[in-house]
Design a protein around this nucleic acid. Sequence first.
RNA 1: GCCGGGAUGGCGGAAUCGGUAGACGCAGCGGAUUCAAAAUCCGCCGCUGGUAACAGUGUGGGGGUUCGAGUCCCCCUCCCGGCACCA
Length: 869
Amino acid sequence: MQDKYQPAAIEAAAQDHWDSTMAFRATEDSPRPKYYCLSMFPYPSGKLHMGHVRNYTIGDVFARYHYMRGYNVLQPMGWDAFGMPAENAAIQNNVPPAKWTYDNIDYMKDQLKRLGFAVDWSREIATCAPEYYRWEQWLFTRLFEKGLIYKRLGTVNWDPVDETVLANEQVIDGRGWRSGALIEKREIPMYYMRITAYADELLAALDTLPDWPEQVKLMQKNWIGRSEGVEAHFPYDATSIGEAGALKVFTTRADTLMGATYVAVAAEHALAMIAAARNPALAAFIEECKQGGMAEATLATMEKKGMDTGLKVVHPLTGESLPVWVANYVLMGYGEGAVMAVPAHDERDFAFARQYGLPIRMVIRSTEGRYTEVSEQWIDAYAEYGQLVNSGKYDGLDYQGAVDAIAADLAAKGLGQKRVQFRRRDWGISRQRYWGCPIPMVRCDDCGDVPVPDEQLPVVLPEDVELTGRGSPLTRMPSFFECACPRCGKPARRETDTMDTFVESSWYFLRYASNDNSEAMIDARAGYWAPVDQYIGGIEHAILHLLYSRFFTRALRDCGLIDLSEPFARLLTQGMVVASSYYREDENGNKQWINPTDISVTTDERGRPVNATLKADGLPVTIGGIEKMSKSKNNGVDPLSMIEQYGADTVRLFIMFAAPPDQQLEWSDSGVEGASRFLRRVWAFGYGLLTEHGIGKNSEIPSSLPAPLADVRREIHTHLKQANHDFAKHQFNTVVSAAMKILNALEKLPHGDASASAIAFEGFSILLRLLSPVTPHIAHALWQECGLGDDILAAPWPEPKSDALAQDEIELMLQINGKLRGSFRVTADAQRSDIETTALATEAAQRFMEGKPAKKVVTVPGRLVNIVV
RNA sequence: GCCGGGAUGGCGGAAUCGGUAGACGCAGCGGAUUCAAAAUCCGCCGCUGGUAACAGUGUGGGGGUUCGAGUCCCCCUCCCGGCACCA
């Protein structure tokens, strides 16, 4: 055995061992219970970053822990390989997206392997491979035929200079990121997935997921956004609108209907179009509303603007004529694209009415009587529920009574009814981009939109293309889009849009189980492994990816492909990796971000940072604060260079120790140094065990130990108990800390004593097994070197022994009036009355009670006594 | 703007059911070892006062419940994630 810890050698040896024994090849015929452990697959952006390393280390800890706990574990890995960055790289470097992507996959796979993850690589998938996306196309045609996919107009960001559709990310302050042109909203035909058909089920089933973080379930619930309310119809005023009809609005505050003084419609609304045709100023305003991006955050923070259309509608209850306004804050995509405005009881309507001089009519009086009339300034109490006033026959009703009565009256007139509205809209999946899965549809002048038949799948994406940044190259490739209509055989045009990349990631977890099947999308093996028992990924996916996957699983279920509704039984959302950032400003005032590896920081005598300098020139730089590791802030730390310097185990140990998995993790070079120091001590202890404690290996631990040895052993088993408890709640940072405490205890054991050596062997075997999921290489090597067994993966998980934990006396805290004033010892089985007598007799109690009698004594067995005087 | 989360020493964090605040680690300070350094080992380490014993104070800010609050309730501030075409 080497006397020094040499991570490079032992990591290579351990990885060879796992490879040659195919240790992590998962099969479906094991007697063990199955455990499907999955980390969100990476986008092959070029290099592994620390966020990946953290994600996959957490996953690997779950996988290896369950392996040792006796489960049949599957931990696969693959590539979320379609997406925009490949196109951007192609434009920049003149490399086809496919080559760029596959090169990145090769490079990142090598990096991943260096970390020693217990991955079954035989199941690897890449979503850009035709073998993968053909099944996505196949499913698309099924869903289209079932009516779960349909086509309609949708809004996109249009760059009029580059003549291309931009992602929200590519719109910066309302302008295209490359052209700088003002972006406008444009309506184009797109395919939609009918996720709203499952809205109720997706919402209700959140209650069947006890092992998902509450915050994620809450975000999903709010995102689906079920609200119960009333649909009200405002008939068109025949004198101002030529045609017959009614304006529909949805409201959750039907109790305020009598206070509606105008209605507002979105710029794209039919009434807006009618009015614009007669009024050039209004047409110009509507054009103005179309400027700027489509992102909700942009729309919601915009200055509220509106214009009167001159059109009138009729209030469904009072018959009053109300003006119709166009307002930029009304969204065409939500509800009916129109709202009734009640300025007295809605903050946004209030501001709008004040701005444009529209009437404000108070119809609710707050039950606490906080106001009796509407003032100049909005106060939040106006929006509270209360009793109706100024509402004719509805006066005096409360919220529920008013809603019931008004809904009934609307229904009687045929002008509305109660209804449920969801915030969640259908999922638009068409992308006017090249590097994605082609939508398997054909447009025929005679037959309309026709799905590509199974025998013509996959529709292969041509990989030899040139990207210009002006639209998708597919639209310029007749060899791709010219085809015969599958139905009538006449010349037709193939769809050139591709699918949103969220589609690929909505079902990949099932394909891992059937990745070699060229006859079917998924097979019985998916039924064996699904659902994923533990899913690990970033909190940023809490809504979209997870909701789409839950929807897709149900769609697959309803196509008869799998008997499953929820794809992920347990979920852990990991925090971000952040690091200090540093910069200098150049002569134009632009920040030049400097990588932390090129910085040295000086501290004062207490260790507080005073200033930072660039190593190269010794001159000061500005400390820019703690930021998410990113290219733009140049504060990323390269995982590979860390592995080369310290070994994979050190990197894994630091990541698991520095923060709980769901919180943000701050990178610290000296913290990594500390992790490395700990592993060197572990190695040194193992070496010492062989060379000095050697005799203890086979000796039994005597039933009666001298007190100091019994204390050390109790300490070890107490820490083990703690570690097992923390493993169960996924708090891995304190698992590592328990392992450190065990080593601290072990190092206190004397050498040359047979009982001490026996305890050392027992304790070290506990330590190695505890560490094995986190630092598998060193645990594997020391387990063999110290003769504890052949393969630590086959060792049983350690459990604390009750005889080691037993103790005769315990220490209790003494409080006087809730303040800690001392402590005292009692036997472990002492009765409450004995504890109180002992407590009152202590010197500290006598001193702080100052002779006054105890008014009350609170005793918490095993914890403390509080004397109130 | 809307939805969700967070704030504890110089730093990362711990505190299992409302019961010893600061475990474990980092940084720092002091010492041992060394020709010297690195590495290693030992000790100290919230803040204020005090040589010390000890006392006071302390979990973003303000209020409340309780014998007892980092933990529960109300209000506020700041920071972070998401907002439907980044993945």
